[in-house]
């Protein structure tokens, strides 16, 4: 009994200091370890950060690339186009991912398009409206048209689904309609594509705009949404590929310097026909033309 309590006293007394010690050792140990591994593998580890639209595609490309290039590790992190550009510029990432073209202020960087993506208006499947002109869309989004019966639909209030500030989808959409974001009277503001599709599919009066590929896939698999043509052009992968569809955007890889070594290899790999099936699987449009 005595022995036990002595033992307990000793363990508890040192327990606290051990906690601190472990913490500090883990920190310092990890830091040095990290530094050495980085150094040893410097040429074989690539880091990609940026757009959440591009990230799932880049991750699949990276996995395939790693298979054919043993010893190479490619880490894909997400976080938004602007972060991709910023990280590429600051050297935190070897390649930045962006779902938009470079802006004027970013023209010192290099960008490489790996795929295209289109944006179109979606409605709930129960909505009888078949097509909307740009003017009608503009009036709906600015709150001048509040009910579907004003554009030939049922007597239902319109739920306007808009994207959150900073999204390249939003910028493209606003540019197409020549609007400012403060003009828009939204009823729901969303973050990512899938949230938009879920919102529209659950609300018969909703109107939203999302990525064409994603919407096409969901509509094919029975989600109650439908795609509207934009400016008279049907929203399909084909019309985007031939650059006929008015609302499309490039998915880009961004680098600070002219790519060389493994970075160049990976970018060429991502632009080649080898990954066409991966691009189609994410419902984007590939640009690479198969060799005849």
């Amino acid at each position: 009994m005595r022995l036990f309590s002595l033992f307990v006293k000793v363990t508890t007394a040192i327990g606290g200091s051990v906690g601190v010690a472990t913490f500090l050792v883990m920190l310092s140990g990890a830091t040095t370890f990290h530094a050495t591994t980085l150094h040893a593998k410097e040429n074989t580890r690539l880091v990609l950060t940026g757009s959440s639209t591009v990230a799932p595609l880049a991750l699949e490309m990276a996995k395939r690339f790693e298979k054919s290039h043993p010893g190479v590790r490619i880490d894909v992190q997400t976080g938004g186009s602007s972060r991709g550009v910023a990280d590429a510029r600051a050297g935190r990432a070897d390649i930045g991912m962006a779902s938009r073209s470079l802006k004027q202020s970013e023209s010192d960087l290099f960008s490489y398009t790996i795929a295209l993506d289109g944006i179109t208006i979606i409605l709930n499947k129960d909505n009888p409206v078949k097509t909307l002109s740009n003017d009608q869309i503009r009036n709906i989004y600015t709150g001048n048209i509040k009910n579907w019966n004003q554009v030939g639909g049922r007597d239902t209030r319109i739920t306007v689904v808009n994207k959150a500030e900073g999204r390249s989808t939003l910028e493209l959409f606003l540019h197409h309609l020549a609007l400012k974001n403060s003009d828009i009277k939204a009823s729901v503001v969303i973050g990512d594509n899938q949230q938009g599709i879920k919102t529209v599919s659950g609300n018969p009066g909703a109107i939203g705009y999302v990525s064409v590929g994603a919407a096409e896939f969901e509509a094919d698999y029975g989600t109650p949404i439908k795609l509207l043509p934009m400016g008279g052009v049907d929203a399909t992968v084909e019309t985007i590929k031939h650059r006929r569809f008015p609302l499309s955007r490039p998915l880009n890889f961004i680098t600070k310097q002219k790519p060389h070594g493994m970075i160049e290899k990976f970018i060429l790999f991502a632009q080649s026909t080898v990954v066409n099936d991966l691009i189609e699987e994410q419902y984007f449009v590939s640009l690479a033309v198969p060799l005849k």
């Binding site: 209030r157 739920t159 009823s187 949230q195 879920k198 919102t199 659950g202 609300n203 009066g205």
Partner: peptide, 17 residues
């Protein structure tokens, strides 16, 4: 909430969210 609750509320008063 997004797939069950919001559509339910939308029936009472749009937009649900």
């Amino acid at each position: 909430g997004l797939t069950k609750l919001v559509p339910l509320i939308n029936n009472i008063h749009p937009p649900g969210a």
